[in-house]
């Protein structure tokens, strides 16, 4: 549900970038949204499609979303594991003491404008 307000924030950032670089049209936007960010990527895309369409700066712009995996740190043995989904247990010591690190970013990586 908060995807809408995040996209509103994105659009205002795109306006600042366009002013700063003296451009009037955003062609594509690339984002990195981590699996633990609490953002539903489909909802974010949906919100972007609706809101960008209403704005002359972003009308027709494409959105590319990548999702970097999270790292899990085992509080038992100290192992670091990189996985898309949280493993059931630590593959090294087999304990259930995995704590996520990162993977919660919502990063605007790159904007193509003209």
């Amino acid at each position: 549900m908060h995807e809408m307000s995040l996209v509103q924030g994105l659009l205002s950032q795109l306006h600042s970038l366009a002013r700063e670089h003296n451009k009037t049209k955003v062609i594509s936007v690339s984002m990195d949204i981590g699996p633990l960010s609490g953002v539903v990527i489909d909802s974010f895309q949906f919100a972007f499609d609706i809101l960008s369409d209403e704005d002359p700066l972003t009308h027709g712009a494409s959105l590319v979303i990548e999702s970097s995996p999270a790292t899990y740190h085992c509080c038992g043995c100290g192992a670091k594991i990189e996985e898309e989904e949280k493993p059931e247990a630590c593959p090294v010591c087999l304990e259930n003491l995995l704590s996520p690190e990162g993977g919660d970013d919502i990063i605007l990586r790159q904007v193509q404008m003209e």
Partner: peptide
């Protein structure tokens, strides 16, 4: 367009790497 008369139409890629939050 008449938004910014001195803007160019060359595509430009801007690396932002900033959190939306």
């Amino acid at each position: 367009c008449d938004i910014t008369p001195d803007h160019s139409h060359d595509p430009k890629i801007v690396e932002v790497h900033q959190s939306l939050l």
